[in-house]
Design a binder for these strands. Structure first.
Lengths: 264, 264
DNA sequence: GTCAGTTTGTTCTCACGTTCACAAACTCCT
DNA sequence: AGGAGTTTGTGAACGTGAGAACAAACTGAC
């Protein structure tokens, strides 16, 4: 809802090219980002939001959510940029890909902008998610409350280990991996999370794809190959630390390098 | 076999753009100003490796490690690229920033290249790491074996909750947060992991910086501000899912948007 | 030694992402 | 109403990254 009633006219006036959203590329198959045919017609087939912008939209969403909880109903691009940890010019450009949802001289209506971003990302309703691999990490993911509050609902936990099939984690029973197909079909699951050891990741991914899952979040430290049309994002904890270590090493040149005497 | 020359000569020959300013760290662009002020540039501190390359080096390292375990002693850029899930031209260009460690017509010696990358990243010896916030996620991180095997050693677990101070997690006692300064000083800890709720993240980061930590890996879903010279990387589980949801929504236009009556 | 085959390292070009700077548009005050 | 003050949205400049293509360098055969 809009806190300031007088803005009603302004907000509806901002709905510019809302009807041009449809226009998904005629090839019904997989994801076709090849709209960049070098030159003409890059924006006619629906707005192509740059990948870097897509990655930041959830951050803005989170910041707007925090503002709402503090009772802030309007904010400027500068305020939101600070809350999101980015440059205000970048923020405005990012938001401009979605449309003109702000008011010049005033700023953005927090709740209205929050809804528009959520709609653009597609988290206005919950996505069913399954987690495969209920070890330490899978356990933590199943209990993570942030999923539920941000548009995702864990509908099933799976593990190949029969010893786990008795347990209940985060209120859900751990089910055998063989039930994957049935669960995905019944609940229309499109997103799967892999939290298995590295050795199992590829075969789990294959099974997921076979069952109909088209988006995978991979926590296993291994590269997985998937067919066209399936998206994979990876989160590797030790890689993040290694990137930090690289910069850390450069900060403190006093740490002398051992010149590898014993390595084969 | 080490067909190429040893480190010293090759490295000095690769001094190209020593004065380029990078500073595109995701959250805070903290970079050591020593490169501009201190013109001496002792030995290996001269090449500016692009941030995108730095982020991929750990992936190559992991692939090389897997090859070693399978007994592969030599590989071409194409083989390594496939194992790492990247383009072979990109791989060669990335490796060229480190030096010329391959042999034309032959390829790369797996173990030699592995060591060179590890040395460049700075994980030839272990980095002491502390974890703050021993909830579900902190628990999983403490038990994660990948840290130890990839150049990191968790030396302490901290939590503000006194109820946890009795417990032992992953062989380490959970210590009160007040001991942060002493632990960081005693163990020379430079890297800290935040696994607390979002509300506590900023104050924990402040305390970490005050204690002398200069690299932070933040799992809490909030933006944290740090002074110049401190690096922050963030891992947000729900953001990754939201990025997947965006692409998933574009794949299946059949999912009609509920027009959220709240906008009335 | 020479030639064919192979693979690296590098250059060049293009696309993408970031930042600046400013016009457009809105509010508020007089 | 008009002007001063704000803030958005966007065009343009700039820097970084990705990928193709190719010369350089090495191996092995004869």
């Amino acid at each position: 809802m809009h806190p300031s009633a007088r803005d009603g006219g302004t907000l509806s006036a901002c709905l510019k090219d809302e009807s041009s959203v449809n226009a998904t590329t005629p090839s019904a198959g997989g994801r076709t980002p090849a709209a960049t045919v070098d030159g003409v017609v890059t924006r006619s087939a629906g707005r192509e939001i740059p990948e870097a912008t897509v990655a930041r939209l959830p951050v803005y969403l989170r910041a707007l959510h925090a503002m709402l909880e503090r009772g802030i109903s309007t904010c400027s691009s500068e305020e939101l940029a600070v809350a999101a940890g980015v440059n205000s010019a970048k923020l405005r450009k990012d938001l401009s890909y979605l449309g003109s949802y702000g008011t010049r001289g005033v700023g953005y209506d927090v709740d209205y902008l929050r809804y528009q971003i959520a709609r653009e990302i597609g988290v206005t309703q919950d996505w069913p998610v399954i987690i495969v691999g209920i070890g330490n990490l899978g356990h933590a993911l199943a209990n993570y409350s942030g999923f539920r509050s941000r548009g995702f609902r864990v509908v099933a936990l799976l593990d190949a280990d029969p010893a786990l099939s008795e347990k209940v984690v985060a209120g859900l029973p751990v089910r055998p991996f063989a039930e994957l197909d049935a669960i995905v079909a019944e609940q229309s699951v499109a997103i799967g999370v892999i939290a298995t050891p590295a050795e199992a990741a590829q075969s789990v991914a294959d099974e997921m794809v076979g069952a109909g899952i088209t988006s995978i979040l991979n926590f296993a430290p291994s590269v997985i190959a998937v067919p066209e049309g399936v998206d994979v994002r990876k989160v590797d904890l030790s890689i993040e630390l290694q990137i930090l270590a690289y910069h850390e090493q450069r900060k403190t040149p006093s740490v002398s390098e051992p010149e590898q005497g014993a390595s084969a």
